[in-house]
Amino acid sequence: MVLAMHMSDGLVNPPTALAFGAIAVIGLAVASSRARRDLDDRTAPMAGLVTAFVFAVQMINFPILPGASGHLLGGAIVAMLVGPWVGSMCIAIVLVVQALLFADGGLTALGTSIVNMALVGVFVGYAVAFALRGLARRSRRGLIITAFVAGLVNVVVASLGFVLQYAIGGAGGADIGTVLTLMVGLHTLIGIGEGIITAATVGAIAASRPDLVYLLRRPGPPLDVRGRAVSGSTS
């Protein structure tokens, strides 16, 4: 059995890989500058642990259909626990460790993978959780529903990232409609698993340390939909 879970080299052509590599670098540069204000003596160790936790859980492939499995991406977990800027760095670090240390995910595919899971997945997960923050802050049950939905949607939209990349520069000439149907179908099933893991993780942490859940911590919205700081937000 070969455990591999991310894009290999050669699935998209070099110009596409390079273009998404550039988008990944720019996105992470912006994220690291924005991440500073979300990191302090308490949240920095939390962010390190959340990253290690996502690495661990990504190893656990769960069955979704006979002959097919899925695993956590983690975008909604990190977005809800440490915020989208720090969270996108968490997922990118996991992907780099997996590619460099475990030969999982091609080196030239790192850009496409980072865009799909660390940027698209995290920010979509955050957008869903942020839209439902009223529900999430009302009760534990509301938080769990929010986490489930954010987890599910983050996986499905991240899978669309691959479809877009394949449509732009995919190798092998597979029918794009078939790729789209299969990717969305399989990742809807995986998304149910992701939603359950996201709900269990965020729910458990909120039960013991709600102050360490980014989505619950701030009384006002820290960011608007375009990621700018909202005037009047604290700190």
């Binding site: 059995m1 455990l3 591999a4 879970m5 991310h6 894009m7 290999s8 699935l11 661990a56 190893m59 656990i60 492939n61 769960f62 069955p63 979704i64 002959g67 097919a68 499995s69 899925g70 695993h71 899978s159 691959f162 790729v179 299969l182 990717m183 399989l186 990742h187 099933l189 995986i190």
Partner: peptide
């Protein structure tokens, strides 16, 4: 828990 992980291809690998 990693010993119990499924060895089947994941969503992306199933498609490719």
């Amino acid at each position: 828990l990693s010993y119990l992980a499924s060895g089947d291809p994941d969503g992306l690998d199933t498609v490719t």
